[in-house]
C-alpha cells in the first residue's frame, strides 16, 4: 500500500477516506505497556503506604465500626432503679472521697523534689507557705575495699519528723571517714563528733536521714548529699519552726 509520512513521523494511508492521522499499532502497544507498568507501580506504592500506615488506618477505621453509643450501659442502668442507683453512687463517691482525704496531712507538711532539688512548705489546708532550694542525695556509690559499699540517695515516699534538734552535733558514720581516706575510728571516738556541720537545726526522719543546714550553700539546688536534705539557713529556720514532730515529709 502506498504510504506517506506526516510531520510527526506517523504513517498514513493515501487511500484512507478520513484524512486524520492515526497512531500506529506499535505506539499504542507501547502506551498500553506504559499504563500497565505505571498502574502496577502505583498499586505497589499505595499498597506499601497502606501496610506502613496500617496502625494509623486501623485506629481511624475503628471509629467507623465502633462507637460508644452507651446502649449497653443504658440498658444495664435501666434494668435497675436508676434514681436510687444515682443516689447510692453519690454516696459511694462521698465515702471514698472522705477515705481519701483521711490520708491527707492534718498539719503543716513539706514536699521535697529530689530531681529538681527544691522544697515547698504547706500549711494544713494545702496553702504553700514557703519554697526554696535544697540539696539531696548525689546517687554516688562509694565502694570501700572491704566489700562494703554505700549509695548516697535520699529515701522517697512519705516520712515523718521524728525528732527536732537545735544546734545539732553530727556523729560521723563510717563512710564519712572512708570517703576521706581516713581510718575508721571506734564507735564513740571523739573524732566522730562534729559541731556546726549540720547548721543551727536538724529534723530527724529516721534511719540516720535528716533535714539540716549546710556549710556548702553554693551547692543548694544540686544533688550533693549523702542522703540527707540540706537547706539554706533562713529556709531551715522557717521549716524548723513550722513543722512539728509527726509532721509529714513527702519526698519524691
Amino acid at each position: 500500500m502506498n504510504q506517506l509520512r506526516n510531520t510527526s513521523g506517523q504513517s498514513e494511508s493515501v487511500n484512507s477516506p478520513i484524512k486524520k492521522p492515526k497512531p500506529n499499532a506499535k505506539r499504542v502497544r507501547n502506551a498500553r505497556f506504559i499504563i500497565l507498568i505505571f498502574g502496577l507501580l502505583t498499586s505497589i506504592m499505595l499498597s506499601a503506604f497502606v501496610i506502613k500506615n496500617q496502625l494509623i488506618l486501623q485506629e481511624k477505621a475503628l471509629l467507623i465500626f465502633h462507637s460508644n453509643d452507651h446502649a449497653k450501659s443504658f440498658d444495664r442502668i435501666a434494668s435497675r432503679s436508676p434514681k436510687k442507683y444515682d443516689v447510692s453512687l453519690s454516696k459511694d463517691i462521698d465515702n471514698t472521697d472522705k477515705a481519701l482525704k483521711a490520708f491527707l496531712p492534718k498539719q503543716t507538711y513539706i514536699v521535697i523534689n529530689t530531681t529538681g532539688n527544691n522544697f515547698k512548705l504547706f500549711d494544713a489546708n494545702g496553702k504553700a507557705l514557703r519554697e526554696g532550694l535544697v540539696s539531696t542525695g548525689s546517687f554516688t556509690i562509694l565502694k570501700a575495699g572491704d566489700n562494703r559499699q554505700w549509695m548516697f540517695k535520699t529515701p522517697r515516699g512519705q516520712l515523718k519528723i521524728l525528732r527536732k534538734t537545735k544546734d545539732p552535733v553530727w556523729k560521723r558514720p563510717d563512710w564519712a571517714f572512708i570517703e576521706e581516706g581516713l581510718k575508721v575510728p571506734s564507735a564513740n571516738h571523739p573524732s566522730r563528733f562534729e559541731y556546726g556541720t549540720l547548721g543551727d537545726y536538724s529534723m530527724s526522719l529516721g534511719d540516720g536521714y535528716m533535714i539540716h543546714g549546710t556549710l556548702y550553700k553554693r551547692f543548694l539546688g544540686l544533688p550533693v548529699t549523702h542522703g540527707c536534705i540540706r537547706m539554706g539557713d533562713e529556709d531551715l529556720e522557717d521549716v524548723f519552726n513550722t513543722l512539728k514532730i509527726g509532721s509529714k515529709v513527702y519526698i519524691y
Binding site: 548525689s138 546517687f139 554516688t140 556509690i141 562509694l142 565502694k143 570501700a144 575495699g145 549509695m151 572512708i178 570517703e179 576521706e180 581516706g181 581516713l182
Partner: peptide, 13 residues
C-alpha cells in the same frame, strides 16, 4: 549513679 572507689589515704582523697 556515679561510682567512686574509696581513696586509700588522705592524699588520694
Amino acid at each position: 549513679v556515679l561510682l567512686v572507689d574509696a581513696p586509700k589515704d588522705t592524699t588520694e582523697a
